[in-house]
Nucleic acid binder design. Structure first.
Length: 525
RNA sequence: GCGGAAGUAGCUCAUUUGGUAGAGCAUCAGCCUUCCAAGCUGAGGGUGGCCGGUUCGAGCCCGGUCUUCCGCUCCA
């Protein structure tokens, strides 16, 4: 556009904002593309020196909110490797072992097995039509059984259908995808949308990453990298309930890595192949699940609100179409730079998981309720938040490129102080006159409580800006007056205001400003 | 997976038709000593994503490949 508004700088687009956030993340050591020197690995990212701190702080805040503030919620750390049967019981093995095929013209993707089954059904339909016609023709004397076993046309159709079924079955058994595709070609199956036979190869899509355990490469040696942490909680339900003397309702919390072989992984750390979940499974009495579902919806939203992010950045999204195991489900969505997207899921999972694990393991996964003097399989309310998504939510919400009154630009991360990677920067005003020594003394006191940075390079203003860019909430500046009366200034990141305080009181003041305690106290349940 | 675009220093980007690879910021060392970036001097940093082809000569042209972004598709 040549007629661009030259007076006001154009509002940067959301895409540009997102790009800036990604650049900023890399430039200051929050997030790097994985294996970058080898051109990166698709949809995998590494957390850098500041990213790891921010991520750790978010995790800790979630963990404390869940376990420390709820007497009836305890944490575990289950292994990433789990017995393969776990994933049969959970439904993950069957849910995503489908052979997929694309039509090149319509660009539609189909399950190859469904295409073939539909084709067979069509042939069988033809048989029924023949039978119907014959029945009309012969009237009361019609012997359907006889007709089906003797009529040449019917027999031909039947033979065809059986042949296809047999071929398909054997192809599946041999896991021969080329043969599956050949069946589609031979049957002259067309795409319902484009009507063409222009098919891609058949590909097996596996959601779960697998690997081998032990040196024997038999089928039993194949194990999966968990696609969700929840199952580690379910298989430990009895262990925790018994050893922790837990009474229903109670919860088990867990944070940890999960792995999904996404078809399309995009949008930076929003959808990664390796990611970290923070999940809590809450076991309740059957019939009380909706009460607790509502409770956790509110409780989780309260947690988000305690981070000081504007309420209109969040919304609930109720699931209309429910997964087979759920009787209620919703997402907490956050307005990322690329729109409202799922940040956390709250699901009423019924007794689906525990019941299936009972069935597959043969172990009784029930709770004895002394009140009713009976046992039951508890219902489960799940809260599941993506740690990486929360990280991105905080980052995209706090990244600002401000234009100050004097026209200069200030990049700042308005992170909640208790989550900031670096809590305090200790800065001697100048690099002489004993100020660095004094600053070091202060550093040596504060470093036992908080992650601090010492910086004496460049002008003081430049150092403030550097700290702003990584979200450090407070800068302590040691000046000449400090040597005389043992006071320093604390400079606030968000409004650049400064206050003078005595060095003696510094530890208490800083602790009060960066402690998680205040935020946790707002989470009254 | 399909279509489109892109890949040059840590970041943002230049390099008019093919002819020795640059800037700003950042980083480091020194000077200056100053409470809100951009003072001075100097330095380091690039096999132009990778592989191949055309050419006397390729960052630029061609092919392949990898990665990223946008749209579609998929997302138990």
């Amino acid at each position: 556009m040549t007629t661009a508004n030259t007076e006001k700088p154009a509002q940067i687009s959301r895409e540009e904002l997102f790009k800036n956030i990604i650049s900023h993340s890399k430039e200051y050591g929050f997030v790097f593309p994985s294996s970058e020197i080898y051109d990166g690995l698709s949809a995998v990212y590494d957390y850098g020196q500041l990213g790891v701190e921010l991520k750790k702080n978010i995790r800790e805040y979630w963990w404390k909110a869940m376990t420390q503030l709820h007497e009836n919620i305890v944490g575990i750390d289950a292994a990433i490797f789990m017995h393969p049967t776990t994933w049969k019981a959970s439904g993950h093995v069957d849910a995503f072992s489908d052979p997929l095929i694309d039509n090149k013209d319509s660009k539609k993707r189909y399950r190859a097995d469904v295409l073939i089954e539909e084709h067979v059904a069509k042939i069988e339909g033809k048989i029924d039509k023949e039978v119907e016609k014959a029945a009309k023709r012969f009237g009361a004397t019609f012997d359907e059984k006889m007709y089906r076993t003797t009529n040449p046309r019917v027999l031909e159709y039947q033979k065809k259908a059986e042949e296809i079924n047999a071929r398909f079955k054997s192809a599946l058994e041999k896991n021969d995808l080329a043969e599956v595709q050949q069946i589609i070609v031979d049957c002259e199956i067309v795409c319902p949308v484009s009507g063409s036979r222009n098919w891609t190869d058949v590909r097996q899509f596996n959601l779960m990453f697998s690997t081998q355990m032990g040196s024997v490469s038999e089928e039993a040696g194949t194990i999966y990298l968990r696609p969700e942490t929840a199952q580690g909680i379910f298989v430990n339900f009895l262990n925790v309930q018994k050893t922790g003397r837990m009474k229903i309702p109670f919860g088990i919390a867990q944070t940890g890595k999960a792995f999904r072989n996404e078809i399309v992984a995009r949008q930076f750390i929003f959808r990664m192949r390796e990611f970290e979940q923070m999940e809590m499974q809450y076991f309740v009495k059957p019939g009380e699940e909706m009460k607790w579902y509502e409770f956790w919806k509110q409780a989780r939203m309260k947690w988000h609100n305690s981070l000081g992010i504007a309420q209109d950045k969040y919304r609930f999204h109720d699931h209309i179409k429910l997964a087979h195991y759920a009787n209620a489900a919703c997402d907490i969505e956050f307005e990322f730079p690329f729109g409202f997207k799922e940040l956390e899921g709250i699901h009423s999972r019924t007794d689906f998981d525990l019941k299936n694990h009972e069935q597959f393991s043969g172990k009784k996964l029930q709770y004895f309720d002394p009140e009713t003097n009976s046992s039951y399989v508890p219902y489960v309310i799940e809260t599941s938040i993506g740690l990486d998504r929360m990280f991105l939510a905080l980052l995209s919400n706090s990244y600002k490129s401000e234009t100050l009154e004097d026209g200069t630009i200030r990049d700042v991360l308005n992170l909640p102080a208790f989550l900031a990677p670096v809590k305090v920067a200790v800065l001697p005003l100048v690099k002489k006159d004993g100020l660095p020594e004094k600053a070091r003394e202060i550093m040596d006191v504060l470093k036992f409580d908080h992650l601090c940075q010492y910086d004496e390079k460049d002008s003081i203003g430049k150092r403030y800006r550097r700290q702003d860019a990584i979200g450090t909430p407070f800068c302590i500046t040691i000046d000449h007056q400090s040597l005389e009366d043992s006071t320093v200034t604390i400079r606030h990141r968000d409004d650049m205001r400064q206050e003078r305080v005595s060095i003696e009181k510094l530890p208490a003041i800083v602790e009060d400003k960066v402690s998680m305690k205040k935020a946790l106290k707002t989470l009254t349940y």
